[in-house]
Amino acid sequence: MNTPETRPSILIRLRDHSDREAWQQFVQVYRGVIRRVAIRYGLQEADTSDVVQEVLIRISKGIVGFDHDSNQARFRTWLGQVIRSAIIDHHRRRPREQASGLTKVHEQLAQLTDKDDQQAFDQVMSHESRNEIFRWAARRIRGEFTESSWMAFWKTSVEQQSVDAVADQLGRSVGAVYTSRSRIMRRLREEVQRFDESLMPEDSSGESPDER
């Protein structure tokens, strides 16, 4: 049985620059997040690495001054602001180089700087970070389960096939498929929370599953 994780989540541990593990895992996840968000806001694929680099540098500098009492949700908001401003800076710096897409860049800039769109940006941010964290967690735990268990989990939950059909395909009992998918889900949840405890709303809002 797994011992409960007593260490703070990855996002909290980042304040310590020498915590390489935390930083490594943070980069594994957020490199993808920053890239996706940047592309969504008009960056060329080739330019994203500049923004990724810029954001990571800003975060490593800024995190030192970050309030120790503040929660992870606030950290994520701050992270979003850093990414947003890095994208804006990038567009401002080189609009001329992309003359053909100039109008589009201006539109993107207008959108990014518009306060009303802050909410939309935050949504994109939280959507992309959630996806990346889930993928990261799935990769981490994949090796703990057998191929057949993993397929049972994947097909029933990600691909949303019926448990009966999957049990049939895999030649396993219905009970076994329910078992695999629940055990893997539990591990996945643990791993996601290890990264960011405030990621899923039920933890921060106290919303119970039955309300849905």
């Binding site: 959630r130 996806n131 889930f134 993928r135 799935a138 994947w154 939950s157 990600v158 691909e159 949303q160 448990v163 009992s173 219905v174 009970g175 076994a176 329910y178 078992t179 998918r181 629940s182 055990r183 889900m185 539990r186 996945l188 949840r189 899923m200 709303p201 039920e202 919303e207 119970s208 599953p209 039955d210 849905r212």
Partner: peptide, 29 residues
Amino acid sequence: LGECRICQNHLESIAAGQDWWQALSGCLS
């Protein structure tokens, strides 16, 4: 578990809340 719908649901809710299950297909597909 193979026969009991109640326990199937129960086990899944212990593993993770509804939100988690719902998030899966969006996050990992």
